[in-house]
Amino acid sequence: MAAFGRYRWHISSLPASVPAIFIGIVLWAASPHGVGAAEPETLYKRCATCHEIGEGAKHKVGPHLDELFGRKAGGLDDFRYSESMRAAGEAGLVWTADTLDQYLERPRDFIKGNRMSFRGMADPADRQALISWLETATQQAPAADPTVEEVSTSGPVSGFADIVLQMDGDPEYGEYLAGECVTCHQASGHADGIPSIVGLPKDYFVTSLFEYLNNVRSNDVMKLRVANLSNEEIAALAAYFSSLEPQ
């Protein structure tokens, strides 16, 4: 059972879903009155850059989420999961409202070394709303062959980010500029404490950089980097990183 020590959840705490729900209720009650959760469709937009759901859903950066509830973590044969995600499934992790709630709060902590570059959803009310919506929205059949090659570029993009997305970034320049990024974001796509940016879709990549620039996201290290990048440089970096495959 040694492997369990690596994950935040423990086999011993799995049957004890009562405390987990209890914590959920306490947090729910503690969220300030009048400030309800955001619309689940809007919340899901944060996932949609990487995940498809609904009739005929395919894999994108992340696996399709159809028939998610009750599914073993890392359980789809035709998606390339990280070893950590597969191992978590092998060790008994199954997606339920509870386990999803914990995963979405802090994905990187819940399963160390998993590849999902999503920082987490801090507000318990938002998570609750999104998860109940997903329970219905994922009850459909995925595509017969959910493996697709092309990377989609749909998703919410602000005006400036849009301009950058129209530009043809120079991947060779991107590779040189990336030298600065890979001191922190490992070129292999491995993540320990800093998210992986290898293979991120261009729109997600560019939008998140603009979010640091516009103070929607607040990490000092990233704000400093982005403040010193021109639009050409962001486009070049997006072209380079989106062309990489995690190893």
Partner: peptide, 30 residues
């Protein structure tokens, strides 16, 4: 440039530590 300030939130200081661990793994791989 930037520099940490006095009286920062605990969560930020903890995130800094996690970041430094990520950086160590990153720079040694580099």
């Amino acid at each position: 440039s930037f520099i940490s300030q006095m009286n920062e939130e605990d969560a930020l200081r903890k995130a800094n530590y996690e970041e430094s661990v990520g950086w160590y793994a990153g720079i040694t791989a580099d």
